[in-house]
């Protein structure tokens, strides 16, 4: 298969298959969580649960000072990676075009030079998290195959995207094909892995905030 053929497959059927696995997988996983349900709480609430839950969905994004001080690398690298990844995904002009073709929505992009920097920062943060997972006793103790796999499938689109953007290592069409394939790998792995936290964290934070909120505690 030539570079251009690979690119065409990746752009066409490949993306459709991966996209379908991703969308259906995520919906099924979230439905499976919600369908488990939970018992109605019969205790007399001090406050409602809905708003404290929603508040926690937002406020939990920022750690309290003591918690930040105890794990600074996890929080800093975590922020840099998540922001870098989201911004390059959503604000790189060719990505916007692709998303427009799917959603019909359009928004202004960021300059390529900034996208370039964001990708490097994001990759650096993932490498830092990888090394930290290797050497930090707690994180090493908690790590399983899924953690390493998630790191790998997340860094690949960033690395291939960066290389394609800068015309490095391989001809542009070849690298672009590998970039799209790596995204497809990410999409396919996503619903079956801890990457699901991208969506399920909203539920987790809401439940936590709602459970505490009805007791009158803002967590």
């Amino acid at each position: 298969m030539s570079g251009i053929e690979l690119l065409n497959w990746a752009r066409g059927p490949g993306l459709q298959i991966a996209g379908a696995v991703f969308v259906i997988g995520v919906i099924v996983r979230l439905a499976a969580i919600l369908l488990l349900g939970r018992k109605t709480d019969l205790s007399r609430p001090r406050e409602g649960a809905m708003w404290p839950g929603l508040r926690t969905v937002l406020t939990r994004s920022i750690p309290d000072a003591g918690t930040f001080r105890r794990s600074p690398l996890v929080f800093i690298a975590g922020y840099v990676f998540h922001l870098g990844f989201l911004l390059t995904l959503l604000f790189y002009a060719p990505h916007i075009l692709l998303l427009k073709s799917v959603t019909g929505l359009e928004w202004p992009g960021l300059p390529v030079s900034l996208i370039d920097v964001l990708a490097v920062l994001s990759i650096t943060a993932l490498v830092a998290l990888f090394i930290n997972r290797l050497i930090d006793p707690v994180r090493r103790h908690l790590s399983r195959c899924g953690d390493w796999l998630a790191l790998l499938v997340t860094v690949l689109p960033l690395v291939t995207g960066y290389l394609a953007l800068n015309r490095m290592l391989l001809p542009y069409t070849d690298m672009l094909a590998w970039h799209i394939l790596s995204v497809e790998l990410l999409l396919v792995v996503f619903p079956f892995s801890k990457l699901m936290h991208t969506f399920s964290f909203v539920l987790a934070r809401w439940y936590n905030g709602a459970i505490a909120g009805r007791k009158g505690v803002q967590v």
Partner: peptide, 29 residues
């Protein structure tokens, strides 16, 4: 295992932040 439990297990990214909130970890390492 109810919906909150499943949401919690699904969301854990093994970041280890909880260790530093637990006095049994902080005092023993």
């Amino acid at each position: 295992i109810d919906a909150p439990m499943a949401a919690f297990f699904s969301s854990c990214v093994h970041c280890g932040v909880c260790a530093h909130a637990c006095l049994f970890y902080t005092e023993t390492g």
